[in-house]
Amino acid sequence: MIALIVFGVLVLLLAFLLVTTYNGLVRRRGAVDNAWAQIDVQLKRRHDLIPNLVETVKGYAAHERQTLEAVVAARQQAVTAQGPHDQASAENMLTGALKNLFAVSEAYPDLKANANFAALQEELATSENRIAYSRQYYNDAVLAYNNGIQTVPANVVAGMTGFQAREYFQAPGEERGPVQVRF
């Protein structure tokens, strides 16, 4: 009789441990999904600013068509990218195109003095900071989640219930190297 009670208590403790572990993994997975949604919100904000910026520059630097087209093409690629790896690559390409656009703007003092351009440039800088923070938050959430599904005893529950490791939002290899400045 006592053995049955002890066995029952052990089964209840094991069930409690499994449920608690499963719920913790679900919360961590939800945090990763939420963090990705926040990146998406910030990227949409950035993508919405870019056409206004391009239109403002067009009026001053119409003959810089190649640069403007590169920004538009990079934006389109970024809007349609799927998953952290593709999104990171597309966003890095867009960042490079925007850098070229701002470099072109340096040659046009009237453009630099334009209030619309200055406001859009400031808005874009703010967006970049928000995106950087969102990426960091996402990667922190992925780290917590991936650690959670790989540690004992959660790895047993994760394996039984189909939890899969998530991908970090990383810059491509060439983006991690030293910056080269050419004059």
Rank of each mutant, 00 (worst) to 15 (best):
E55H: 13
G59H: 08
Q42F: 03
D40I: 01
A70P: 10
V79H: 06
L68Y: 03
T67S: 03
G59M: 01
H63C: 09
T80G: 11
L18E: 08
T80S: 14
V26G: 04
H63P: 02
L53A: 03
D48I: 03
V11K: 07
V72P: 07
V57E: 01
N23Q: 13
Q66C: 14
V41Y: 01
V32E: 10
L68H: 03
W36Y: 06
G24F: 03
R75I: 02
T56N: 03
G59E: 12
V26N: 12
R65F: 03
W36F: 15
G59P: 02
I39N: 00
A62C: 11
L13D: 13
R29N: 12
E64L: 05
L25T: 12
T20E: 06
Q38E: 04
N52P: 09
K44L: 09
G83N: 04
T80N: 13
V41L: 06
L49H: 11
G83Y: 00
V71T: 06
L17D: 06
A61M: 09
A37Y: 03
E55F: 12
L13C: 13
A37M: 07
G59Q: 03
L49Y: 13
D40S: 09
A78R: 00
N34Y: 05
G30H: 05
Q42L: 04
A73H: 14
E64Q: 09
A74Y: 01
T56I: 04
E69A: 08
L13S: 13
L53H: 12
T80V: 12
Y22L: 06
Y60C: 13
L53M: 15
L18Q: 11
T20W: 09
V72K: 15
L25Q: 15
V54I: 13
A35P: 12
L25H: 14
T80R: 08
A61H: 05
L17K: 15
V41T: 10
L53T: 14
L17H: 14
A15Q: 12
Q82L: 11
V54R: 02
A73K: 14
A31W: 01
R46P: 00
T67I: 03
K44C: 08
V41C: 05
Y22F: 05
T20V: 04
P51W: 07
G24D: 12
R29W: 10
T56G: 02
K58V: 15
W36K: 00
G59A: 03
H63Y: 09
T21K: 10
Q38Y: 00
E64F: 10
V71H: 06
V72G: 05
Y22A: 11
R46E: 01
R29I: 04
A37T: 06
N52L: 09
P51I: 08
N23H: 08
H63Q: 08
L53W: 01
G83D: 01
Q38G: 00
K58A: 13
K44E: 14
R45F: 01
T20K: 05
R28A: 06
V26Q: 07
A35S: 15
Q42K: 02
G30A: 10
L12S: 02
L14Y: 15
V32H: 04
V54L: 12
I39T: 02
R28C: 14
Q77G: 07
Q82C: 15
R27L: 12
D33I: 03
A74V: 11
A70N: 11
N52R: 13
L14H: 08
V41F: 05
V26R: 11
I50K: 03
Q76L: 15
T67K: 06
G59R: 10
R45Q: 09
